[in-house]
């Protein structure tokens, strides 16, 4: 689930994990009604919320055992499962240290391990990499990709990082202002956008150059942002000479030009951009 801060991702997760009640409507998780069968839902799901959810005054192992016991595992099962998850997340060396001594990346891994203790059918990961340094983020990505591939489990991941959704998601739902704007596999969404994106970096503010590009044939969805121009074209390679000629003719200095295949970024801007216009018109 991809969207900006405030788009409604966390609220959706809270409703689906029985943490909040919807103002209206109903929701089901693996066929279970979140309002009528909250306990059954809680057995079926694991939650890794945005904030660290381990008990800082307990060790990694104690955190896992407690979570397992609450889910109904016997003491020996809970201990065995804890050991297994600690090994899997490379936390064995830190297993008997208090969670408050863990680094950001380790704490996040422990959070995910806690969410997996009872082998849930659905794992909710609410912005799992927010606040992690690039290395820890990369490790977390690898871990999530492995989870989705190896376990018979649905992972619902919310993120405001486009690259994260692109890398990890089998299906993407783009949400904005509490609504799903568009949904599909990243490939489907990208292939709906015809052609390439042309990015032009200028030495000065791009807004002035906007009318120049509007006169170039074959360009669509032209937009200026800071010193950058972006536009879509059926063939980027063919559009570039015309773009450069037009800018040169108008006396606009160009720093760089790049052509990119459509990215999820483009999908997002296209859909959410249009949604904003609709909201403004309404």
């Amino acid at each position: 689930m991809l969207g900006r801060n405030g788009a409604g991702k966390s609220t959706t997760v809270k409703i689906l994990t029985t943490l909040a009640r919807p103002d209206s409507g109903r929701a089901w998780v693996v066929g279970l009604d979140v309002l009528r069968q909250p306990d059954a839902v809680r057995h079926a799901i694991g939650l890794v919320s945005q904030k660290a959810s381990s008990d800082p005054m307990a060790t990694g192992r104690e955190n896992l055992v407690l979570a397992g016991r609450i889910q109904g595992l016997t003491r020996s099962d809970a201990r065995a499962r804890a050991g297994e998850l600690l090994a899997r997340f490379e936390l064995t060396d830190a297993a008997d240290r208090l969670a408050k001594t863990y680094s950001g990346g380790m704490a996040r891994k422990l959070d995910v391990a806690i969410g997996l203790v009872h082998r849930p059918r659905v794992l909710f990961l609410d912005e799992p990499t927010t606040g992690l340094d690039p290395e820890a983020r990369g490790q977390m990505w690898a871990e999530i990709a492995r989870l989705a591939a190896e376990e018979e489990m649905t992972v619902l991941l919310t993120t405001h990082y486009l690259d994260e959704a692109d890398q990890l998601a089998g299906r993407v739902a783009i949400v904005d202002r509490g609504r799903v704007i568009v949904e599909g596999t990243p490939e489907e969404l990208k292939s709906e956008l015809r052609g390439d994106t042309v990015h032009v970096e200028l030495t000065a503010a791009a807004a002035r150059a906007l009318p120049v590009l509007e006169r170039v044939a074959g360009l669509r969805e032209i937009a200026a942002e800071g010193s950058r121009l972006r536009a879509r074209a059926d063939s980027g390679a063919r559009a570039v000479p015309a773009v450069l000629a037009a800018l040169d003719g108008a006396g606009v200095d160009v720093t760089s030009v790049t052509v990119a295949r459509p990215s999820l970024d483009d999908v997002y801007l296209r859909h959410v951009g249009r949604a904003f216009e609709e909201v403004a018109a309404a």
């Binding site: 809270k14 029985t18 919320s49 904030k51 959810s53 609450i70 889910q71 109904g72």
Partner: peptide, 14 residues
């Protein structure tokens, strides 16, 4: 609550 411990517990069958 300030950490995510409360949410995690409430989303569990405790």
């Amino acid at each position: 609550m300030d950490r995510g411990v409360m949410d995690r517990l409430l989303a569990s069958p405790v």
